[in-house]
Design a binder for these strands. Structure first.
Lengths: 208, 208
DNA sequence: CTCGAATCTGACGCCGCGTCACGATCAGAG
DNA sequence: CTCTGATCGTGACGCGGCGTCAGATTCGAG
């Protein structure tokens, strides 16, 4: 009974997982400090003490690391979204919970992630679409559709609706981060108001 | 009366203008065919018959060409937006005109610009902010503020409002382009409905 | 301990970038 | 028309980042 009945398994897989994480963490730092564009694969692996070749055992490119980072963000956000859904009572409640959760999440990430950027940086905002992000999208769309089915909101094109809600949330969220102080509540009030009112004004799918 | 009282001026400036345009046109094609990421400065310049050095007399990088292209788009859209503003009668009229104009513009660009892309391309959507685009943003925000001042709509945070309107328009517009057939009318109905209703549900800035 | 497989290492060749010395072309002065 | 300075075009060059691969190292099963 001396040795493992644990799960950390072999030493091999341990270092593998450790390296993955090390690369991801290093990438976060480097992207934060140098900006995505000017960061290089070698900048990243230098911080891990690994070699160039090792990097390519884990990721195929800088882009893929970035996607992994984004995917990770979405994965961490998902349970918050689910919690909002489960504790919601009706349409407005869901929207408010989800958006407040998202804005808090955003503000939080904002602090200990791009803590410091070189002053007047151009950040040519490269948009990505990861599997986990697609899952988040689907979850939102389905939740909205579900709530509409239950008659808590008028029935409208769920695809366009999800797109619009996410668009508003994302852009308002981003704008929010540029204001001082960062007030997630005010931003959430705005976004929720916009969406709730918006739904009321939308073209219906079927006769009500 | 045989020769110029025109404006083409010197031969020097003529070729200069011609080269600028040639590079821009070539860039449009190349970005459309190879995608932005994998396109190179040399791919672009090859189509113009110019030399590498010549390219750098006009633009500093591939990125700058892309910005010039985006700027050009915004510049061509601006008069349409202005027309929408001038022919509008009240808030909803303005919003509808502007959005319909934008969606038609989008659909039009979509046809003869990214006519053909390599099948399953990743397009890492590089977001850009050009001066002309900033001007469009300001114009929209000011128009909205103006209309609110006149009492045609409740007064709300104009910055957030402009961001939200643009976000909805852009994302719905993009989604619209992925549907077949492309129906700018349906999309516009949705976006306008969303915004008009949304404004009604927004937190007011002052007591009304 | 032995050996095969998994993993790491870093030098290498490739490719795109932006530059720069040189040559060609133009516009104005004489 | 010629001369001359200035402007613009040319392409070879050096730089730097990328992704690879043969060899070295480490792990773990037998």
């Amino acid at each position: 009974m001396s040795q493992v009945a644990y799960l950390p398994v072999g030493k091999r897989e341990q270092t593998k997982a450790a390296n993955r994480r090390a690369i991801l963490d290093a990438a976060r730092e480097v992207f934060g400090e140098l900006g995505y564009e000017s960061a290089t694969v070698r900048d990243i692996i230098r911080r891990t003490g690994l070699s160039v070749g090792a990097f390519y055992n884990y990721y195929r490119s800088k882009e893929e690391v970035f996607e992994a980072l984004a995917d990770d963000g979405a994965r961490r956000f998902r349970p918050l979204l689910r919690a909002a859904y489960e504790s919601a009572e009706g349409f407005e409640s869901y929207v408010r919970g989800a958006i407040q959760a998202y804005f808090d999440f955003l503000a939080d990430e904002h602090e200990n992630w791009q803590a410091r950027r070189p002053a007047g940086e151009r950040l040519p905002h490269t948009h990505v679409q990861t599997p986990e992000m697609a899952a988040v999208f689907d979850e939102i769309r389905d939740a909205l559709a579900e709530v509409m089915e239950r008659g808590d909101a008028p029935r409208v094109d769920p695809d366009y609706l999800a797109v619009a809600c996410i668009a508003v949330s994302r852009e308002i969220g981003e704008r929010m981060l540029q204001r001082r102080p960062i007030d997630t509540r005010v931003a959430a009030d705005f976004a929720v108001g916009m969406i709730m009112g918006g739904v009321a004004g939308l073209p219906r799918l079927y006769a009500d």
